[in-house]
């Protein structure tokens, strides 16, 4: 069995407030405390690698893996630049990044590593790695979120990285960087009065959190299109984090789930969640969409229209 190649998975928010201004509101502090708890759990685990899937690193040319052994720069967020700068120095596992590219290509995906001085690592990845692995005790790999990728491509991507983990005999913590509902307030707010943008967003977020707490990751994966339509601003084609998380961790509901924090971040839904592989299962699984092992590109429906 290779179940322990994933020690556990984390779902964390992308916005910088827990890193840069945790004291600005009780909610931000609770998110920060949850990050700190996860940091301790990573330190106490057998993990030798952190894999970050960041929704705030969009790519176009396939899937990019950060491979600069020492990624160092000072980042400033586009929106929240007034909260301060985000200096970072991260240790990346360039060998593992190369392995991921190889496995992704074997499964039909376009993939490449990026290893450039001054490459702009995104706000979400910086926030996550700065808080979860502040001393670079464990090397990391960050994978981009292709803006055109949909379900099959994202699921194959997760499987490809799992292939690499298996072959390299690594033990990883996987980190998804994403909001739940992602609609922010479009006017400045007092952080102490931050709240989820709408009741609908909050209702859906709490339903998603119920699934997470029950360990129903594959059920969430199957609900991704509905989640996208209900509570995601339509910036990209799909809500992909649950697809990726399920495919790399295992497409089932056998997890122990724990919601460590759920708070508003400028109106968006920010949650720190842990999923740990377990033997138990819950839920009536009704998996509507086919599984996919190999990515064959977009179907050309026009060419096949006359069939």
């Amino acid at each position: 069995m290779d179940h322990d190649i994933i020690q556990f998975g984390l779902y964390v928010p992308p916005h910088p407030h827990p890193l840069l201004s945790p004291g600005a509101s009780e909610g931000y502090q609770r998110l920060r405390d949850a990050f700190d708890t996860c940091r301790e759990r990573i330190e106490n685990s057998d993990a030798d690698l952190i894999i970050v899937y960041s929704t705030t690193w969009p790519s176009i040319i396939g899937h990019q893996f950060q491979a600069n052994p020492n990624s160092e720069w000072v980042h400033v967020d586009d929106d929240f630049h007034y909260l301060g700068s985000m200096p970072y120095s991260f240790t990346m596992d360039s060998v593992f990044a190369e392995a991921c590219v190889e496995k992704a290509q074997e499964r039909g995906l376009q993939a490449r590593t990026v290893n450039y001085d001054a490459f702009p690592i995104d706000t979400g990845s910086i926030t996550a790695l700065s808080l979860l692995n502040p001393d670079n005790r464990i090397p990391a790999t960050i994978v981009s979120s292709n803006m055109y990728a949909n379900r099959s491509e994202t699921i194959v991507l997760g499987k490809a990285i799992r292939d690499a983990l298996t072959e390299e005999k690594r033990k990883a913590v996987v980190v998804v960087v994403s909001s739940l509902s992602n609609r922010m307030f479009t006017e400045p707010i007092d952080p102490s009065e931050d709240r989820i943008h709408s009741q609908k967003d909050d209702d859906w977020n709490r339903k998603i959190l119920e699934f997470f707490e029950d360990g129903r990751l594959e059920d969430l994966s199957q609900l991704s299109r509905e989640i996208h339509g209900q509570i995601r601003v339509q910036k990209v084609v799909a809500y992909k984090p649950a697809w990726w998380m399920a495919s790399i961790m295992g497409q089932h509901n056998n997890y122990d789930g724990e919601v460590l924090a759920y708070e508003a971040l400028n109106g968006s839904g920010g949650a720190v969640i842990q999923l740990t592989p377990s033997a138990g299962s819950i839920g009536d699984k009704e998996f509507d969409e086919d599984d996919v092992e190999y990515y064959r590109g977009d179907r050309n429906v026009l060419d096949q229209g006359g069939v």
Binding site: P58, S59, I60, I61, A118, F119, P120
Partner: peptide, 11 residues
């Protein structure tokens, strides 16, 4: 004064 690296086309 800095360096701009395109996150999509860094090559």
């Amino acid at each position: 004064s800095s360096k701009s690296v395109d996150p999509v086309f860094p090559n």
